[in-house]
Design a protein around this nucleic acid. Structure first.
Lengths: 159, 159
DNA sequence: CTCCGTCAGTTCCTTAAGGGAACGGATTAG
DNA sequence: CTAATCCGTTCCCTTAAGGAACTGACGGAG
């Protein structure tokens, strides 16, 4: 399909997409987070092509989102676990869940509920500002050029 | 490519991916949010195929994420604007930005800075619990089956 | 009126990526 | 020896993305 590489763009959204933007990748992350750590389990759970699953796992490992851990020496077997980088990526999943629950769940309601350890309540994520702790959404901010704005590192990208 | 349909799955992540999971879609959303509202502008800004851009825009409109607004009657011209559904989807972009800034920006630093209207500071989004306002991440929660858990509505999906 | 330019797509062809099934090697169980 | 499990890899087919050319409505210059 000769797909455009997003990784070279001077945009954190594009670069994040370069890591988990391929089809199936977020669902693989979801399953690994939920405790489905092995190739065979993942393939059955997701119902996806083994070929593509192998490609995605390999990519996520090279990107440092997942790590391979040996769980059996003979026969040699590995399972996939989240790194810190991958665990933080799960924030993205929580926000996707929130939006999906609100806009796509319909009358049936959310398929999964989330109980927060800190308070024990069923809740969902909300976005807050790191500085003032007040709600922070796309309509609450101004965009300013940052230090990495299409200089040095990011060549041959768009803008 | 005969891609698997995620929309039928009983999973809010999969259903969100069904809406904006295609290549380029999040970047289109980003550009429209940032004020690039017209076909020609988008195509130039993104450097993507006109064919795929037309497909994506059409899809995002049918999904209610974008709306077409007439800005010229003769010649008849439309521009694309965010709906409420689309505006809330931008939360996802903010979280992608945060992760991308932390893990992919490198020494150059973030390409874009975000100034919060409420406090005037340069900040980033943090995830908080809707119930107790404390930090809420993937490691802070338990998953429980919800009302929409692979019953009625969601047939022929995985699980 | 004709020619040029702009804008918003559409059509066509080539190339590459996903689906799916079969195959491979290593090992254990019966 | 045969069957089963686990983790991939290889194969072919279909479909989606890239890219350039084309359409069609209009406006302006000459």
């Amino acid at each position: 399909m000769q797909r455009t590489q997003f990784g070279a763009m001077a945009c954190s959204i594009a670069r994040t997409l370069d890591v988990i933007g391929e089809p199936w990748s977020p669902l693989i992350l979801r399953d690994v987070y939920a405790g489905t750590n092995r190739f065979e389990q993942l393939q059955r759970s997701l119902g996806m092509s083994r070929k593509v699953l192998a490609e995605r796992l390999s990519w996520l490992v090279t990107q440092g989102v997942l790590a391979r851990r040996e769980y059996s020496a003979r026969p040699l077997r590995h399972e996939y676990i989240l790194t810190d980088k991958g665990t933080e990526l799960c924030d993205l999943l929580l926000v996707m869940v929130r939006w999906g629950d609100r806009w796509t769940a319909g009358e049936a309601g959310p398929p999964v509920l989330y109980r927060h350890h800190a308070c024990g309540e069923i809740g969902h994520v909300e976005l807050r500002c790191s500085e003032c702790e007040q709600p922070m959404h796309a309509t609450d901010i101004d965009l300013l050029p940052g230090p990495g704005a299409s200089t040095a590192t990011a060549v041959s990208g768009s803008g």
